[in-house]
Design a protein around this nucleic acid. Sequence first.
RNA 1: GCCCGGGUGGCGGAACUGGUAGACGCAGCGGACUCAAAAUCCGCCGAUGGCAACAUCGUGCGAGUUCGACUCUCGCCCCGGGCACCA
Length: 865
Amino acid sequence: MDPIYKPEVIEPAAQRYWDGARCFEASEDASREKFYCLCMFPYPSGRLHMGHVRNYTIGDVVSRYQRMQGKNVLQPMGWDAFGLPAENAAIKHGVPPAQWTRENIGHMRAQLRRLGFAYDWRRELATCDPEYYRWEQWFFLKLYEQGVVYKASSTVNWDPVDQTVLANEQVIDGRGWRSGAPVERREIPQWFLKITDYADQLLYDLDKLPGWPEQVRAMQANWIGRSEGVELDFELAEGPVAGYDALTVYTTRPDTLYGVTYMAVAAEHPLAVEAAEGNPALQEFLAECRAAHTTEAALETMEKRGLPLGLSVIHPLTGARVPVWVANFVLMGYGTGAVMAVPGHDRRDWEFATRYRLPIRQVIAPADGSEIDLCAGAFVDYGVLVNSDGFDGMSSAEAFEALAARLEGEGRGRRRVNYRLRDWSVSRQRYWGCPVPMINCPACGAVPVPEAQLPVRLPEDVTLSGVGSPLKAMDDFVRVDCPGCGGEARRETDTFDTFFESSWYYARYCSADQEEAMLDDRARYWLPVDQYIGGIEHAVLHLLYSRFFHKLMRDQGLVEGDEPFTNLLTQGMVLAESFYREDEKGGRTWFNPAEVETQHDRKGRVTSAILKDDGRPVALGGIGTMSKSKNNGADPQGLIDRYGADTVRLFTMFAAPPEQSLEWSDSGVEGSHRFMKRLWRMVHEHVAAGPAPALETLSLDEAQRELRRQLHATIAKVSDDIGRRYTFNTAIAAVMELLNALGRHAGEQPQDRALRQEAFEAVVLMLSPIVPHACHALWTELGREGAVVDQPWPGFDPDALVQEEVELVVQVQGKLRGRIRVARDAPEAVVREAALSEENVSRFIGDRPVRKLIIVPGRLVNIVV
RNA sequence: GCCCGGGUGGCGGAACUGGUAGACGCAGCGGACUCAAAAUCCGCCGAUGGCAACAUCGUGCGAGUUCGACUCUCGCCCCGGGCACCA
């Protein structure tokens, strides 16, 4: 055995073994319990970053642990390969997006292999491959048949120079991020998926996900935003306008109906548009509201403004005339685009009414009878009705029911459920994405591409100028005969939102090589995913869309079950210290932490830092996420080259529990490397002394029994930490402690060596999910047959945990005053006697009488005087 | 504003069901080995007082429950994340 730990030798060797023995190729086996472990697939941006390393190491540890538990484990990997960065890179470097993407995939795949992750690479997929996206086109057409897909006009951010649609993040201060041109709002026909039809299921099924973090479920519930209320009609006092004879509003507070003093409609509302005809002031206001939307200015600070429309409505209960205003805080996209304003009991209505001196009426009083002052602000809580005719004295809840019933009876209102969730617009006016499989015919309208013609392949040999989508100029792609009438038609040049691809990839891994169908029976075997792992940033969009897709696939008979991911782990971010220098103009130059040396005071507190290059000081920029702009990223590749994959894996698992953010520390990595070297050396010393004899548990002396007790206690703890708690950091700490104890145990008797053999074997087994390469080598060095990857997880020997004598802590008045050793099963009287006679304890008791004595078996004694 | 997290040594973190606060690691300090350095090994390492044994204080702040509170209850302060004119 090599006395020196050489990751550069043992890591490739272990990987060659796994590949040769096809260890991680998973196949369906009904006789074994399956475990599908999945990490969110990466966007092939070019190279792996620390977030990837952390994410995939967690998944790999879980997978390898479950494998040792005897489960049939599937852990696949693939590429979320469509998307905007490829187009930007293409424009910048003149490389086609397909080429750029595939080169990046090649590089990142090699990096993942270097880290030794236990993937079934046969199932690798890239969403930009026609073999993948053809099924997504096929599925889209199925949904179209089913009526889940529809086309509607919707507003987009349009860059008039680049002739392209911009995502919200690409609009900076109202201008296109690349062209700098003022962004326009355009109405463009787009494809939508009716996710709102599934809103209730998506909300209520959250209760079926106890294995998800509370936080993620809460975020999804908020995003769906279900509210119960009443929709009611206010008859227009001056007769029909713009084809309406009533103004319909939605409210969650029908109990405040008697407090309505005005109505407010959105700027885009037909009544406002109609009223603006021939009214320049109103027209100007509507135009301002439209412009304000595009800038996405801080809405919270936006002033509430509006103008009267010169219309009024009739209150359905009192018959009073109520004026109609247009207001900039009313959203056309929610409810009916109009609200009944109750300034006494709604903050926004109150602000608006105060500004424009509109009347404020109190109709709700606090349930506890306290006084309120509506001049100071609105009273928004539920309470008891006042000034509301026959409804006075009812609680808000009672009044909700009574008013809803009355309005429904009179045909002027109905109970309604509203959602914040909007239908999902899946069209993107972009090149690098999956083509929407539709054909636009002047005669027939939008016609689906016939199934036999799938896939609609995205032409990959393109040059991107940055102006418009290159697809529009490609006649070969665009010109097509209409499948309906045979006439000349144009192919749809929009592509799908990339969330479309990532919404079902987890299912496709099960049937990755299936050429005849989207999914097959194998998906029924593997799904749902038992453990899904990824970043919290996907808490809403990706994880909501995937849940939606799973229900769509279920309704098409493609999968079983209601939910795709049984357990979800959201890993924390990777943070690092940053350093900078400021020039005269206040501009900052950021230095990578690798180029900087920190200096500390005698306590070890960081006081300042200098640049290694010139020895002059740099400023501390604080801890934050690793980012390009702050130049504080640690490059995984450099660390792997220097320390090996195992050290990097060990550090990322040891530095913090997986859900918390992880602070990067180069010296922490050094520490992990030290541990690897130490483990290697200790095993080497043990092995170099020759084979160990068989362990005879009955002949161990006290020190040996104590060491063995610690060994088996550690096995029990590590099993629980990795298997149940997912606290890999404490599992590693426990193994470190065990190794420290082994180092202190000096004996060289045959049974000491036998015990050491047992301990090292257990350590290697326990660490093998985390540092698999070194453990692969050490298992063989310990003289064991077979590969550690095929070994079962170690069990603990309950007999080894039994102690004849235990140490008890003795407290007086709850404060620690001494320790005693007593037999494990010592009767209470003996424990009591031992505790009271302990020197320090008796000193503290003095001559005070003992009032009470509490014994917690195996732990402590507390004496109350 | 609403909804989630969180606040423990110089630092990352541990203490899982109320029962020894600070495991493990990093940094720091001291020592061994060495001509020297690196590597490695050993020891110390919350604050205050004390030669010491030990004592007092100490988990954001204030109260409470309890024999006993980092852990439970109430009130407050601060930090992070998400949503945010959603009627």
